[in-house]
Design a protein around this nucleic acid. Structure first.
Lengths: 293, 293
DNA sequence: TTAATCCTTTGACTAAAGTCAAAGAACATG
DNA sequence: CATGTTCTTTGACTTTAGTCAAAGGATTAA
């Protein structure tokens, strides 16, 4: 992947200084970075893992920022081993000011480009970022009863409950045992350690599987992640000797329908009656013998 | 320019480590960077300005690398104040090895993307880089006799001498006095301090100017720089009260012709007979009174 | 042929960045 | 409720990174 490295070289040399060298003019870079990561308050633990810092190092930087009146530290309300760090008003002013400066600098860097070219640049950067994010997400098979699986399903339920006019009843969710072990499969997508999407496969009848609960966290949509989860589910289906997969969708989920169609699914008559189902799809998967002619 | 900063943040956090932290695993970052910049041998002076290092600091790092057997230092053959630094065979092996590692790492980062998405990513990064480069180039008016102006014209002459079947005679170049002061204008484009393109304007007759010698360094083509130089030349024309500009091109320069057409130039009958001219163009510029109705 | 300038080395520092281990408070679990 | 784990703080470091000024050899300009 030479292209990535070439771009990285050029980019860091020309632009990478933006939030570092220039930004932390009045204080050490480490402290400046810290100040920026705090946002609306986080735990020290979170900061440590986000920035990959040594505990002692972080503790000392925190103390320094505290004595400068930039941050305030208090114990976590729920777990008093944890410390919450947040910006003081002075700290917020400082961050805003630095932001303003960096924006002005960024603006200056692109002075020479006309509006068309700027728009082109912004779009190209957005595309790059989108794809880099997608590349950083892993899709892993987990047990249907795993905490991350349940958390995703809860989020899914809340999400569609808000979206369906008739609401959504959680009793319609798959049972953990339906999607674990030999019975089916459950996949969770992780971005930087946090679950951001899921998808379930269960056996419907011999040779036929059903895909359910494909869900993507709102902040992670439009990256193409659903399709990746779908691919994993289909792979799992063939491993379970399910060479036909079906699914149903609600009429309000038009993007989902489009995605299924684009992924080779064809609309079929209802295979099951279901209060939330308005469209039914099916796809025939290649059997191992077909794959190796 | 929020978009640039947002991208920068994400990018440096996810990818920026590539050539830095990971690459310099066995030695300090400063030394690793130095090792990479050496390439096929440079002077310490050049390194200092390229990397923006303190003379003493550089001297010490050089000594460290030397004692590790990675580099060799000798006096510059032409100027014995200067030192040339070059990789030893061991140093070259080290650099190659680090390169291999970084490539593998980059490869791994994109594992999850399919071929289509990779291609999309590469294209988006190429577009970003192209536009960032363009944004970094400045176009400055210089005297027609300035060394940079003459250097560009020499490169231009050599370039088209190779391209025209009939060759090119340098006596056809504009004279410095034709494009200086009130008589005309000469622009040079600079990328990181080096001239990478030029363009000349001279008075043809009252109210009519001629654009000549628009040239872009081969490594800098396809960025859209020619159009920027053209814009500067047109601005200079109106400042010189030349509200019509003309130019001619050789039949082999088809991209140039396309660019002139796209920039509002229309083909006209020959306004001057000329051995190298096969197409003639003209554009009417807005007079100040038109611009402010 | 001086004087001024350029390039590098060396000595003497400082500040930032980061590491490691010990210890104490709070929590989780059997 | 004893035990192990988690999170933070503190002390005691080391390594990098970087700065400044003096000095000496080479070159250039006057």
């Amino acid at each position: 992947m030479r292209a990535l490295r070439r771009f990285n070289r050029y980019f860091t040399r020309r632009i990478g200084v933006l939030d570092d060298h220039y930004l932390g003019q009045d204080r050490p870079l480490g402290e400046a970075r810290l100040l920026f990561e705090i946002g609306d308050g986080v735990s020290l633990r979170e900061l440590r893992s986000r920035l990959g810092l040594d505990a002692g190092y972080l503790s000392r930087m925190t103390k320094a920022l505290q004595s400068q009146g930039m941050v305030r530290v208090r114990v976590h309300p729920a777990d008093s081993r944890l410390r919450m760090i947040e910006l003081t008003p002075a700290g917020r002013i400082e961050v805003d000011e630095q932001n303003r400066r960096a924006d002005a600098l960024a603006e200056g860097l692109l002075d020479a480009l006309d509006a068309d070219r700027r728009a082109q640049l912004i779009e190209a950067m957005a595309t790059s970022q989108r794809l880099l994010r997608l590349a950083a997400i892993t899709v892993e098979r987990v047990d249907g009863a795993a905490p991350d699986a349940r958390a995703c399903l809860d989020a899914y339920a809340a999400d569609i409950d808000a979206r369906f006019p008739e609401g959504f009843d959680k009793s319609d969710l798959v049972k953990p045992e339906e999607v674990s072990g030999d019975a089916g499969a459950f996949f969770v997508a992780y971005e930087e350690g946090h679950p951001v999407g899921c998808g379930a496969l269960r056996r419907l009848e011999p040779g036929v599987g059903e895909i359910r609960h494909v869900w993507i966290h709102p902040d992670t949509r439009r990256l193409g992640l659903a399709r990746r989860i779908l691919t994993e589910l289909e792979r799992a289906a063939t491993e379970h000797d399910l060479y036909v997969v079906r699914l149903d969708t609600h009429r309000t989920l038009t993007e989902a329908q489009a995605m299924y169609r684009a992924s080779g699914y064809t609309e079929i008559p209802p295979y099951v009656d279901h209060i939330y189902a308005h469209h039914w799809f099916e796809k025939r998967l290649a059997t191992p013998s077909e794959a190796r002619p």
